[in-house]
Computed example of a mutant assay.
Amino acid sequence: MNKLLRLNSREKNILVKTPIMASLGPSALTKMLDLATAVNYESRDILFREGEEAESFYCVLSGYVRLYRLNKDGREADIRICGPGDTFAECLLYLGPNYRYNAQAAENVTLARFDIARVRAAAEQDVDISRAIMQSLANHLLTTMDCVANDRLQTAPQRVAHFLLTSCPKESTSASIRLPFQKSLLAGKLGLAPEALSRAFSALRRAGVTVRGRLIQINDVNALKQI
Rank of each mutant, 00 (worst) to 15 (best):
Q158E: 15
A103F: 04
A122G: 03
T166C: 12
T155D: 13
R113G: 09
M145I: 12
A106Q: 01
D151R: 11
Q104A: 06
Y99T: 08
A117Q: 03
Q154K: 15
F88P: 01
L92M: 06
D146C: 06
D151Y: 13
P157N: 08
F163A: 03
P169F: 10
F88M: 02
F88V: 01
A106D: 04
R152C: 08
A123M: 01
S136W: 01
A121H: 00
R120N: 02
E107A: 05
N102K: 07
V119D: 03
T166Q: 15
Q135K: 06
A103L: 06
L111N: 03
V148K: 07
T166G: 14
A117P: 00
L153V: 08
A161E: 13
T173I: 12
R120K: 09
N150G: 05
V119K: 01
T155Q: 10
Q125M: 09
S172Y: 11
T87N: 08
A138G: 11
S176Y: 14
C91T: 11
L92Q: 06
N139D: 15
S174E: 15
R159F: 12
L164N: 12
G96D: 12
L137N: 02
N139C: 12
A156Q: 08
Y99G: 09
A117L: 01
V109D: 02
R113E: 13
L137F: 05
R178E: 15
H162E: 14
H140K: 13
V148R: 08
N98C: 12
Q154V: 05
E90W: 02
A117M: 00
I133N: 01
N108E: 09
Q125A: 14
A122K: 01
P97W: 03
D115W: 11
A112M: 04
Y101P: 00
V119G: 01
L95M: 09
E171K: 12
A138P: 04
V127P: 00
S176D: 14
Q135F: 07
T144P: 05
E124L: 07
D115F: 06
T155H: 13
A132I: 00
T155I: 09
N98F: 13
A103K: 04
F88I: 02
A89E: 04
T143C: 10
E90V: 03
A132Q: 03
R100T: 15
S174Q: 14
Q125S: 13
R113F: 06
A132E: 03
Q135R: 08
T166K: 14
S167C: 15
T110G: 05
C147M: 10
V119H: 01
F163D: 11
S176C: 14
H140P: 07
V160E: 10
L111Q: 03
I133G: 02
A161S: 15
L165S: 11
D126G: 00
S172H: 10
I116T: 08
